[in-house]
């Protein structure tokens, strides 16, 4: 007996749309993945072969960049560890603050919620600007050359994230559950911690990932507020490395010492190697949270 093909039958119009979307998605995927592959191959190329430009298949394979990283392992590992600490602590605090801000805004019986929501929305459109912020953080909060410089400025809580979580609470958690809990004797803290947060896993993962990526990739805070090399995160280290390479390239190479240094350093490939190393945790975590992330991204799109 011939086996029945388990294939979804598509209607005429649907089939066309199906194939066009498939082509578009494949193109998008290529646009995303090509730079990544290029980054990897450049990091595995010898510095001399890169003079002619970047190639997908290295003209000359080399692990020099990674040996250079290995030689600098103490600095890189410290930067790596620091980045993980900042990302984990920052993300946790950010999630707590965002959801705690969103919870009262989702409560119909919280009368000033519209005023508070407006203030929150206002901060999304207007802020004091870079100079004023810098002065406040350094002179009032004294965060210069401390880990707080990575955690506090502009990263703890975003207005957009609060609105996302509030909308999730409103659209996905029936208000009668909160009322039932109130009647069961639960106070607001119990309702928030035992009901709202566990029921908001998709949106928590989504904003958690946004926030974590924000902390992981944050190099500006390091540039503005950190002078102590021991407090460099991996992104700040990468930025400093790139600046140094730029310095070597633009400096008058008649100075013999500088010339020697520039020849012995795997400059371009090292840049890419650091970027690859910085990417690993994101690539490792993403597949595990992809499902919840998609659920969180389509909040409000479909009402269950």
């Amino acid at each position: 007996m011939a086996k029945k093909k388990n294939k979804i039958q598509l209607m005429k119009g649907e089939a066309g749309f199906h194939y066009v979307s498939l082509v578009v998605m494949i193109l998008l995927m290529i646009f995303c993945i090509v730079p990544l592959i290029l980054m990897l191959t450049v990091s595995l190329s010898s510095e001399a072969s890169l003079v002619k430009g970047y190639r997908f298949i290295p003209a000359q394979w080399s692990l020099d960049a990674y040996f250079f990283m290995w030689a600098k392992r103490a600095t890189i590992l410290r930067a790596y560890g620091l980045t993980i600490v900042v990302t984990v602590i920052g993300t946790i605090i950010s999630l707590i603050m965002t959801s705690m801000f969103a919870y009262p805004l989702s409560r119909k019986d919280f009368k000033p919620r519209n005023v508070v929501a407006f203030i929150l929305f206002f901060t999304m459109l207007f802020n004091g600007g870079m100079v004023a912020s810098y002065m406040v953080w350094t002179r009032l909060f004294h965060i210069k050359d401390s880990l707080l410089a990575y955690l506090l400025p502009g990263s703890l809580m975003g207005g957009m994230n609060v609105l996302l979580v509030r909308n999730y609470f409103n659209a996905n958690i029936p208000y009668s559950i909160i009322e039932a809990a109130r009647l069961d004797g639960a106070n607001d803290w119990t309702i928030y911690s035992k009901i709202m947060v566990p029921l908001s896993k998709p949106i928590m993962i989504t904003i958690g990932l946004f926030s974590a990526l924000g902390y992981w990739n944050n190099w500006t805070a390091g540039i503005y507020y950190i002078n102590n090399p021991k407090l460099y995160t991996i992104q700040v280290y990468l930025k400093k490395l790139m600046d140094s390479i730029q310095f070597l390239k633009t400096t008058d190479l008649s100075n013999e010492a500088v010339l020697l240094a520039s020849r012995s350093l795997p400059t371009e490939s090292a840049r890419m190697a650091v970027a690859i190393i910085a990417l690993i945790p994101v690539l490792a975590v993403y597949p595990f949270i992809q499902k919840e992330l998609i659920k969180g991204m389509v909040v409000g799109g479909v009402k269950g």
Partner: peptide, 27 residues
């Protein structure tokens, strides 16, 4: 409401979906 010693049974059940039957009853 939480101080009135009143319980309410809603039409749409209003069970806590993240908790088991035991946890719901014990809440």
């Amino acid at each position: 409401a939480q101080e009135r010693d009143v319980a309410m049974v809603f039409q749409n059940y209003s069970l806590y979906p993240n908790q088991t039957v035991y946890q719901n009853i014990a809440f």
